[in-house]
Nucleic acid binder design. Structure first.
Length: 565
RNA sequence: CGCGGGAUAGAGCAGCCCGGUAGCUCGUCAGGCUCAUAACCUGAAGGUCGUUGGUUCAAAUCCUUCUCCCGCAACCA
């Protein structure tokens, strides 16, 4: 047994999560955490809302609320959604917590003491009407190169030229629309990445063999281009005020305190039960801890460069990431998810249409691992109907119904197993071994394909054994076959539990069992196949899943703004 | 010449690192079964592996040209 620390990139509090957010870090981290718990490891699974920054301030402004209440409200909304998707966080915290404030200050002080914090003057755009400095993104105007009227302060989307906000003609604030802007100079604190670079490079090189290609190549690209000092403060109200003389009216940049949130939220978790939980065991003295981070590819630079550099710069022995798993993006019917254009399906709505396991299974089996992948309701319906209904649900149904009608509602006695069972068990064990291997290696598509192959073996077996024919001649042999099948149901439930926990519970409940402390460690199918004995009662129950009709698919497409009717 | 990822049957993907008969799932077609959810099982058809040139006895795989898609480009997070 080892200790495994799992974190998911912290979702930003302002937006409502869509399926892309779910599949890009939250869901796979949960599947991994569940799998590791079930294979006998001590797991700490941490996530939470990332709350600071301009976007929250503007969001609160537009909602007519103060930022604290606005974040509190949205935090609850996120929390509820993830609860509905059965994400099994040990702690779902907030980057605005007092624990994170302490943590951020502690790390900042260490960096400052070690000489990795420098001061620089920065020219910024001040909006007299908004009474705030505007990030480049919040300024639009006419592009001086191509005349495009909606160019942003950092870049013109039309001609792709990189701009300074001062280049724009008729520059305006996107917040108020005001053009009453001026350039002001302001002093800010920078993290001296170049000074930390040698240590960082050494650390990063040691990860080459372990990180997925996407993550490692993105990290190396940044190093190749050379690191520059990075600004870690902002002229905002919403954030942790900077504990340094002359900077009291500024706050830390959201990207400085957000990843520190992993530590802060761990403290939050430890503070709930100080007698039995300890922050240090996981983050400071945790040489026995294996740390796996999940995130979308846009997050990789921060987790591979800035955050490790921050931790290295403290000089403390903070735990740094062992495996950084980056995902590509899920697109919607070939385009982008967009709330404003009502395109795409958002997590809150998704859960109203189908319960979590439909989404969990579909998303994990189509997770954007090697490149972007596209969500479509046609694909969704086909996967749900074929895999969950046709293969898994139907197997459970045919076995339980046949057993009940021929032998009553208890597992029948008598009969012997044959070579047929041995062959089947061998095949299943091989799939299980590969399933475990891929789950450990975070190769989710391959893992899911093995899981499906395991379910398929159930149908293969019952077809080959044909108990419905055998029973006419040899009732005992038919009993033996159905006993094996009943045990397969239990085995399928245990193996599927990390992906589809609710369904696993349902399958076990049919035998009055529950998941409880179910253990997948050293899973030996030839022993497990004898777990349920003759005389064990069961209930047939309703089908595990509902089929999705072509009409329903069309309805969903229309409702959620698909471009392909 | 900014950087990275991707392009393989109608659809979604694996194979590429380490060259040796192009594979999986869905869909389609045919057959089987009748325990089960229009389900399940078996078989078949379907691909000059985005493009150009090269290395090699041999290239999806290694090198090169170009095209298209996605993301990033450090002050959105």
């Amino acid at each position: 047994m080892s200790k495994i620390l799992v974190t998911s990139a912290l979702p930003y509090i302002n937006g409502v999560p869509h399926l892309g957010h779910m599949v890009g870090c939250l869901l796979p981290s949960d599947v991994y955490a569940r799998f590791m718990r079930m294979t006998g490891h001590e797991v700490l699974y941490i996530a939470g809302t990332d709350e600071h920054g301009t976007t929250s301030e503007v969001g609160a402004l537009k909602a007519g609320m103060n930022v604290e209440d606005y974040c509190q409200m949205n935090h609850q909304r996120h929390r509820q959604t993830y609860h509905d998707f059965n994400l099994s966080f040990d702690c779902f915290g907030r980057t605005s917590s007092k624990q994170n404030r302490e943590m951020t200050y502690e790390i900042f002080e260490a960096l400052n003491k070690n000489g990795f914090i420098e001061e620089r003057a920065v020219k910024q755009i001040w909006s007299n009407d908004d009474k705030m400095f505007l990030a480049d993104r919040y300024i639009t105007g006419t592009c001086p190169y191509c005349g495009y009227e909606k160019a942003r302060g950092d870049q013109c989307e039309n001609c792709t030229k990189v701009l300074e906000p001062t280049d724009l003609i008729n520059a305006k604030s996107t917040i108020s629309g005001s053009s009453n802007l001026e350039v002001k100079e302001s002093k800010h604190l920078f993290l001296s990445l170049p000074k930390i670079e040698p240590k960082l490079k050494e650390w990063l090189k040691s990860k080459e063999a372990f990180w997925p290609d996407v993550a490692y190549s993105i990290a190396m690209k940044w190093l190749k281009e050379g690191l520059e000092p990075r600004c870690i403060t902002r002229d905002l109200k919403w954030g942790f005020s900077v504990p340094k003389k002359g900077y009291e009216d500024k706050v830390f940049y959201v990207w400085f305190d957000a990843p520190i949130g992993y530590l802060g939220i761990t403290k939050q978790w430890a503070d709930e039960k100080p007698d039995e939980r300890n922050f240090k065991d996981w983050w400071l003295t945790g040489d026995d801890v294996y740390y796996v981070q999940f995130m979308g590819k846009d997050n990789v630079p921060y987790h591979a460069i800035t955050f490790p550099a921050t931790l290295l710069g403290t000089g403390e022995n903070y735990k740094k990431v062992d495996i950084l798993k980056g995902f590509s993006y899920l697109t919607y019917e070939g385009g982008k998810f967009s709330k404003s254009e009502n395109r795409g399906i958002f997590a809150e709505d998704a859960i109203k249409e189908f319960e979590a396991d439909y989404w969990r299974y579909f998303l994990m089996s189509n997770i954007p691992e090697s490149s972007d992948s596209s969500f479509s309701f046609d694909l969704f319906a086909s996967v749900i109907n074929k895999d969950l209904n046709g293969v898994l649900g139907n197997f459970v149904s045919r076995v339980l119904k046949m057993t009940a009608s021929k032998f009553g509602n208890t597992i029948p006695a008598g009969g012997k197993t044959t070579e047929l069972e041995n062959t089947m068990l061998n095949t299943v064990q091989n799939h299980i071994d590969r399933y475990f291997k891929y789950m450990n290696a975070l190769e989710f598509r391959k893992a899911l394909s093995e899981l499906r192959a395991i379910w398929v073996e159930g149908n293969n077996y019952i077809t080959a054994a044909e108990p419905w024919t055998v029973i006419k001649e040899d009732e005992n042999r038919a009993a033996a076959i159905l006993r094996v099948c009943a045990n397969l149901i239990r085995i399928f439930a245990l193996l599927s539990a990390p992906i589809t926990p609710q369904t696993a519970e349902k399958m076990l409940q049919a035998f009055s069992l529950n998941l409880g402390d179910a253990d997948l460690k050293d899973f030996d199918v030839s022993k497990q196949i004898e777990f349920l004995k003759e005389g064990h009662s069961f209930e047939v129950g309703e089908p595990l899943f509902e089929r999705i009709s072509p009409e329903r698919t069309l309805e969903l497409k229309t409702k959620y703004g698909s471009t392909q009717p």
